[in-house]
């Protein structure tokens, strides 16, 4: 611990850090919870097709499934390189 840390009064307690981290990961995991099991494979195969034409990497393709009442929307986000 440096002398500057000693004077820093706004140091966060560890319980608040835990809460913040949990809120983020739990929200993230909940959003994926109700997705069908085929989504990761779908994402992989889509990526392969797109790669035939454009040079994109795994994290530049995002597949999301939204359920709105009785209809589902499959959303595909591809970030194309400049």
């Amino acid at each position: 611990m440096s002398i500057f840390d000693y004077f820093r009064t706004t140091k966060k307690d560890t319980a608040s850090i835990a809460k913040e981290r949990l809120q983020i990961i739990v929200a993230h995991e909940r959003s994926r919870r109700n997705q069908p099991d085929y989504l990761p494979k779908l994402q992989q195969e889509l990526l392969e097709v797109i790669r035939k034409y454009v040079d994109v990497s795994q994290d530049q393709v995002e597949v999301l499934l939204d359920n709105n009442g009785n209809c589902s929307v499959l959303e595909l986000n591809i970030i194309l390189p400049d």
């Binding site: 307690d13 560890t14 319980a15 608040s16 835990a18 809460k19 949990l22």
Partner: peptide
Amino acid sequence: RGEMLGVDD
């Protein structure tokens, strides 16, 4: 002491 998550959290 802020070392453990509280019940409300």
